[in-house]
Simulated scan of single mutants.
Amino acid sequence: MMKKQIFEERKVSWLELFFDLIFVTAVSSTTHLFVTIDHHPEHTLLYFGEYLLMVTPMFWAWVGQTMFYNRFGKKISHPELFMLSQMFFLILMTASFDLEFADTFYTFIIGYAGIRLFTVIQYFTAAKKYSAEQKQVANLLGRLFLVGILISLSAIFFEGNSRFFIMYAGIFLDILLPLLNGKKLQKVPVHFPHLAERFGLFVIITFGETIVAITGILAEKVTDPYTLLYVFLSFVIISILWASYFHSFEHVVDQNRATNGQVFLYGHYFIIIAIMMLAANIHLLFLGHLNKSLLLLFLYGSVALFFLSKQVVFGLHKKAEIEFSIWKEIGLVGLLACFYLLNQLTSLPLITSLLSILICALLDLMIRFQSSKLVRKRS
């Protein structure tokens, strides 16, 4: 039986919104960086891997501060001092995003470690102002994150590829350790409505980047009919995916759920990666310089990842009266796979791929509306 909790009203603060503003730049920088692989077709997979290795610590830096502020932010004096300091280190880390990663390794690791160290300091500071279980959880998270940071920082004493391995070993341990201690974190549930709103705002940021991507396509060919059609279809797809996400956000999610927030947190990593990948691939497919088969795989894969991760996140946080049909979801992803194979095995024009994704996106939105409509009729 899912536990319920009555949460006091809590709005996202202006400080949090200012904090998010820096991440607008970070998301834009990483997406722009991935689009530049158009000039290096022989390194597409390599640079895609590097892109993920840059997006992941960026996302985790935002998550770290967001989760702390959600649980313990009330009793931190002058939180702006901590968050503004983190924002400076994020600027340093964002400026270090480079496909030639060896050139910016030191500034990148200093930026990431600076953000995380301020988060750890906040946990230890907050622990002094709480008692019993809250103090225990705050100290636990502070210690876990400190271990990951120290491992990552030790990479500065190494050279060559081994330093990258050590740095990311620390980052992935930083991400993994809270997951392994999920039961202990349940002692201090998150303020779920606030957390859901924070992740919704981050998703808005990534959807905004898709608009930037298609605007870049149109910028130099405003009067070209084919370009106008391509951008129009891309915009409609983005709008439908946005509507599907936020319809579920508004009508499916149980805002009174008591949870440690981990499924919501880790699931949104894949949602955000999917949206960012969609933005980049829409742009790269239009340019037409890279291997079309690989880009189609990325394009359809990003949409499938969006469908599946969204379903998991909202399915596990849904209201009790909402019913999801697993067969509808399997059918939707199966249809998407059929369209992908059709476009891979034939020489259909690129517009066909957009139209097929548009059909799947519409079906996904219809399923969401149908589920919520049935609930309203029953009630």
Rank of each mutant, 00 (worst) to 15 (best):
V147N: 00
S302M: 07
I91H: 02
L297I: 10
G208L: 11
S239N: 10
F369M: 09
S371N: 12
S248A: 12
L297Q: 09
I110N: 04
K373D: 13
G49K: 08
I357T: 14
R198G: 02
L308N: 01
V27W: 05
Y300K: 02
F306A: 06
Q134G: 04
D254H: 08
L241V: 00
R378S: 15
P79H: 09
L218V: 10
V188P: 01
I156L: 10
D174A: 01
L287F: 06
L195M: 15
L299C: 07
N343C: 10
G111V: 11
M167Q: 13
S325G: 03
W242L: 15
F88I: 15
A196L: 04
K75D: 11
D103Y: 08
M87V: 07
D364P: 07
A155M: 09
E323C: 05
S239A: 15
F324G: 08
N161M: 07
V253Q: 08
K75G: 04
Y269I: 15
R163N: 01
M93Q: 08
F48S: 06
L90S: 06
K328Q: 14
E209N: 14
T94E: 11
M83T: 12
L153Q: 07
I37Q: 10
L287Y: 07
A102V: 12
L374F: 04
N256H: 14
Q311I: 02
F34M: 14
T104L: 01
V12C: 00
F314C: 05
F369E: 10
F124Q: 03
H247Q: 04
F339D: 10
Y168P: 00
P41T: 11
T223E: 14
I238T: 15
G200V: 00
I330D: 02
L144E: 09
F19G: 04
F68Y: 09
Y47C: 01
L84I: 15
K292M: 14
L117C: 14
F19M: 00
L17E: 07
F235C: 02
L218R: 12
V27Q: 05
K318W: 09
L350V: 07
Y106W: 11
F157V: 04
S131G: 00
R10T: 04
L294S: 09
E321Y: 04
W14P: 01
Y226I: 12
E9A: 11
G301C: 13
F118I: 12
I211H: 10
K11D: 13
I359R: 12
E42N: 14
L285K: 12
L345A: 13
T206H: 00
L144M: 02
T107W: 12
Y245G: 01
R368S: 12
F232L: 08
Q370S: 13
E42H: 14
Q186F: 08
I217C: 07
V303R: 05
E16S: 04
L305D: 09
I115G: 06
F199A: 03
N70H: 05
E42T: 07
F314S: 09
A274R: 07
V212N: 06
L99A: 11
S244T: 13
F235A: 04
L180W: 00
I271C: 13
F59E: 10
F172C: 03
F7E: 09
Y266D: 02
K74R: 13
I151H: 03
V253L: 15
F157E: 01
V12S: 13
F369Y: 13
F68W: 05
